[in-house]
Amino acid sequence: MKEEKHIFSMLVDNVPGVLSRVVGLFSGRDFNIDSLCVAETLDPEVSRITIVSRADAPIVEQIEKQLNKLVNVRKIRDLTGPKAVKREMALICVKAKAQHRAEILRIVDIFRCKVVDVGPGHYILEVTGDEGKLAALLNLLKPMGIKKIARTGPIALFREPN
């Protein structure tokens, strides 16, 4: 069966060990994690965890059910597909040789990134976008030389009905 990328978003009790329960479930059952994001919601008793995983349909069903079964997980949704907006942030440290500096700034402009650190030999760029945008940007920056990168992995929210 075909593996597909799925993005799961769950609301969990904001208590010690809850992340460990979620992550332990993935490793213990040999489910895959591509990326993971956690932070408190407006309600300090509740956190949101967003996990991207690759799996075939029966495993996706198991992941959802198994997560739901955890006592500290309140709600889980599969936000795969266009019904949700997804964004990821990245910090990219790119080499900035004299002959490339103008080109990099042009790219920054086109992609609506921000330069958050400048040095004689580098820029650190901050970028937010969906998967496609980040891939396109990285593709363009690669020839200049990417020194380091830190990505958050995607977060997602359902679009509100119009």
Binding site: G17, G24, L25, V71
Partner: peptide
């Protein structure tokens, strides 16, 4: 022990 038994309990507490 909470860490050790997380995968083999229905739930656990410290």
């Amino acid at each position: 022990i909470v860490g050790i038994t997380r995968p083999c309990t229905k739930h656990n507490y410290l």
